[in-house]
Design a binder for these strands. Structure first.
Length: 522
RNA sequence: GCGCCCAUCGUCUAGUGGUCAGGACACCAGGUUUUCAUCCUGGUAACCGGAGUUCGAUUCUCCGUGGGCGCGCCA
């Protein structure tokens, strides 16, 4: 990386080498395994603000090392969502840059080389234990209420010659990082006192999976180093695995970056923000009519307050004064009510012309109407029918009558289960098209042994607010996946008012049942 | 179970040994507005508990308690 730069002095032509302060580089590294999470925007915002405050660079890296769950559809959504927020990255998979590629699945040779280095230096070793053995081991440890839960180090005792022979024989294996037996790992966190974690509690982490892909820990450390990341600003959920990262930097002989662990966004019940209890997809917020600048402003208020006490600020203003020392550590509850208030302020601050432009670029435009016309036309008697008929397409939460929802199946629990099943089924759907949506309902109809005609009324009400409405598959395309998932959740939540709930043990039981009939969910 | 992180109004937070503990959201009351919303004014509401340090602790230390996160061939 460029740490020196030449500079012509004003007078004369003498060139002198000046040592510049290292360029600050931060990154957001989402994993493309689902909807773009609002927490990603929150962490990205702080990374962006910090880097830009110091004239640095902000990088986007895609962490797609989970071959099973990563999808290109999710990656596209994440890029689209992040772009919508207005947090622009200097380097990334779509932009390129001097430190690419920025998609981890395209860097496999780099990880391979690095893991070989660790094996050669004795910091890592191949492990032949099967997944079955490991989960058995874990269960035993749990059952015995052992202090230590984790890998027992069996394969670290293997003779290297023997190990090589087994690898050459094609035996499947992973590579593990050797963890020290005693002492403490010291982590320097920019926001906290020294964090000390006993090495005894850290097991030999897998670095390379049997499929030849790296795990997060390896890929993340190698990339952060190679991409010259100076500050790793991430959620505090990572504190407990930080020792593994520190150990890797040591093993490679690299200087670790500065760690900055931000508090996690929470649900109203204080648990980590989850889609079950809150909308978490950035694209939902876009569809629900929030302005990105309001979302960013609100997110900026989580765990941070500017020195001047001003609550309303643009991204530029936040960047201009951002100060890590003003980050607070208590886990903030994500309060949609306050976000809504902020959004209202931003909406009202626009001129009517600006507002109209924003609303057009949101969804009140030709593109939407052209999709609506073909499905609305056959149902029109007067032109005045159009807007009332399509209103649900431009709404967020609909007014649900739980009795009506339950009435479609005649059974509360059954209703909840169907809604939940649909939610799970649609969550995993990649292409959001009429055909694929229809496939899902057909499959449900078959699995539930319920004619489509009997199955659909529930979903007409949940998604469109009425048993009689525009065709629901087409409507779902207009609404977008995240809004549809949200509506299903709203409907599910509304059932609670008639004492129908699907959570805790019942939910667990139903999850098993669902997986038995529909296959494992992601 | 073990490890770690955290702790000010219901919520987001300011505060860094001496403040009537401030602001914002929400809520309540009043005012402006043909209604509503906006806007303005006012109000209710917090330092988790116990020791210690100190002349004096919301603020520093320790111990509790509470909450959170982690303990995957997920990130």
């Amino acid at each position: 990386m460029e740490r020196k730069q030449t500079e012509a002095s004003g007078r004369g032509n003498r060139q002198r080498i000046v040592m510049c302060a290292e360029t600050i580089r931060t990154r957001i590294a989402p994993s493309p395994t689902g909807a773009p999470h609002i927490g990603t925007a929150y962490i990205a915002l702080f990374n962006y603000a910090f880097a830009k405050r110091h004239g640095g660079e902000f990088i986007l890296r895609i962490e797609d090392t989970d071959q099973v769950r990563s999808t290109r559809a999710s990656e596209n959504d994440i890029l689209e969502a992040l772009e919508w927020t207005g947090l622009s990255w200097d380097e990334g998979p779509d932009k390129g840059g001097d430190h690419g590629p920025y998609r981890q699945s395209e860097r496999l040779d780099i990880y391979r080389k690095h893991v070989d280095r660790l094996i050669a230096s004795g910091h890592a070793y191949p492990c032949f234990c099967s997944s079955e053995r490991l989960s058995e081991l874990r269960n035993e440890q749990m059952a015995a209420k052992q202090e230590f839960i984790g890998y027992d180090g069996t394969c670290s005792m293997l003779d290297p010659q023997e190990a090589r022979r087994r690898i050459e024989a094609g035996e499947p294996h992973v590579v593990r990082l050797k963890s020290p037996a005693d002492g403490d790992c010291v982590i320097n966190d920019r926001l906290r006192e020294e964090i000390r974690i006993p090495w005894q509690t850290i097991d030999d982490q897998i670095l390379m999976k049997a499929d030849g892909f790296p795990t997060y820990h390896l890929a993340n450390v190698v990339d952060d180093h190679l991409m010259a990341i100076t500050h790793v600003i991430r959620g505090e959920e990572w504190i407990s695995s930080a020792p593994k990262h520190v150990l890797l930097y040591q093993a490679f002989g690299w200087t670790p970056p500065m760690f900055v662990h931000l508090p996690l966004l929470r649900n109203p019940d204080k648990s980590k923000l989850s889609k079950r209890k809150n909308p978490t997809s950035i694209l939902y917020y876009r569809q629900a009519g929030f302005l990105p600048e309001a979302v960013l402003n609100y997110l900026g208020l989580m765990a941070y307050s500017p020195a001047d006490g001003q609550e309303e600020f643009t991204l530029e203003q936040m960047v201009a004064t951002f100060d890590l020392d003003r980050v607070s550590l208590g886990g903030p509850i994500f309060d949609i009510l306050k976000l809504r208030n902020f959004n209202g302020r931003y909406l009202r601050a626009l001129t009517p012309e600006q507002l109209y432009e924003r609303i057009k670029s949101w969804m009140l435009n030709d593109d939407t109407w052209q999709r609506v016309m073909p499905i609305a036309q056959p149902r029109l008697e007067q032109m005045t029918d159009l807007v009332p008929m399509s209103a649900f397409l431009f709404a967020d939460r609909l007014a649900y009558d739980p009795e009506l929802l339950v009435g479609t199946t005649g059974d509360g629990d059954r209703t909840a289960r169907l809604l939940q099943t649909a939610q799970w089924e649609f969550e995993g759907l990649g292409d959001w098209t009429v055909e694929r949506i229809k496939d899902v309902f057909m499959r449900m109809s078959e699995t539930e042994d319920l004619k489509l005609k009997k199955l659909m009324p529930l979903f007409f009400i949940a998604l469109a607010g009425s048993k009689v409405a525009l065709p629901v598959f087409d409507s779902m395309v207009v609404l977008g996946k995240d809004m549809c998932l949200r509506r299903l959740q709203y409907a599910l939540d509304s059932l609670a008012t008639v004492d129908v709930t699907l959570k805790g043990k019942a939910l667990k039981r139903f999850t098993k049942e669902y997986e038995g009939r529909y296959g494992r969910r992601n």
